[in-house]
Design a protein around this nucleic acid. Structure first.
Lengths: 209, 209
DNA sequence: ACCTGAACACCGTTCAAGT
DNA sequence: ACCTGAACACCGTTCAAGT
């Protein structure tokens, strides 16, 4: 009758380590717990994690890869619903990013902390982020082509600015800075979306075409 | 003739610890070195740092406070040279922030990592950041008053968006993401300034007044 | 007043040994 | 095939003892 406790001896310790590591990162911060504590909480020995991950960095990288795939899938889904207008799709892209970060803050912190693991060494991280970056660039280029964004600025600079705004907004929330800007945590998502839209709209309506 | 080696036994160990900690953070990353290693490099015992700082967090907080004061002084100096136009002063504020972060990346990382120490517990950090935040808000308000920024958007949302853009741009550089956006490290400062100006200009010229 | 260095309770990681 | 648990070389922090 009871399928639990799960038998970590038969194939699911790897995922259990990742899930528990995310839970502990959420509770304490991603550098405030030890692998030994993680093993303890799962009832395995201190050496067991090393059967599945070469080291701490490899565990963190695996978590980051899982989270990054989720971003890509979410973006693909949301783009599908966003219509054809490049500017609207750019907003939707920003909203996907915001929602992704706010729905899994612990994973966002891990993904964006370059010191936890070697980012350049993970093929899947590279691929997924590249895809999102390429989409941003293409949407900006399309928006410029149909006059929604100014052609006087380079595609790269526009894309970089928009990306930085989305990233900066999300980080300010994740780092707990929003209350200092009079934004209550409960209204963070709404405010972040609004602030991003403000930036996109400003550029869309800016002259210099 | 030789005033060196400095006698850490007579009052300058505290500053030496801070300087060496910054140097090691620059070399290895701010969490990749130990207090014992720091003590070793300064030729003192493993317990000596605790004569000057209650714990690791207190050392990091002291470094952050020193760096934050520098930001405030730099902003004040640059504002003085920026003229009277609110939009120009907003750009100057952003440039001060960018220059500050790029001139001392290790300190920027420490300041913006909320997990290293209790941010809310440092009076001086609060005060200095509050001053910069207030300046941002006032400049936005002035810009709205003289028609340089739209009055349809709230002062808070405009300020938040601009601040997020500056912060996001700087973080992308600090986290090594700029090469992926076709920006060479040597041209980072120029590109970041340009991207920020792009955002300010877009808002300045946006209608809805 | 300031620093030493042993001591304590931890780490990450390895690896022979077990099942 | 997967996990154990002792072992190694580290940590941060404390504190009696030194100067």
């Amino acid at each position: 009758m009871r399928t639990r406790p799960p038998s970590y001896h038969h194939g699911n310790l790897r995922q259990a380590l990742m899930d528990e590591a995310v839970a502990m990162s959420h509770e304490y911060g991603h550098e405030a717990w030890s692998l030994r504590e993680l093993a303890r909480r799962l009832g395995v020995s201190s050496g067991a994690p090393f059967r599945h991950f070469a080291d701490r960095a490899a565990l963190m990288a695996a978590i980051a890869e899982e989270a990054t795939l989720k971003l890509r899938l979410r973006v693909a889904r949301d783009q599908h619903r966003a219509g054809a207008q490049p500017a609207a799709r750019l907003k939707a892209l920003g909203h996907s990013f915001i929602d992704w970060a706010l729905d899994q803050p612990a994973q966002f912190r891990i993904v964006s902390d370059r010191r936890l693991f070697n980012f350049d060494q993970s093929g899947s991280l590279q691929v997924h982020f590249h895809a999102v970056r390429e989409l941003t660039m293409q949407l900006v280029k399309q928006a410029q082509a149909c006059g929604q964004l100014p052609r006087t600025a380079s595609t790269q600079d526009l894309a970089l600015t928009l990306r930085a705004t989305a990233y900066g907004l999300v980080r300010m929330h994740i780092d707990g800075q929003l209350p200092q800007w009079q934004v209550k945590p409960a209204q963070a998502r709404k405010h972040l979306r609004h602030a991003l839209d403000l930036c996109v709209d400003a550029m869309v309506t800016a002259p210099g075409d």
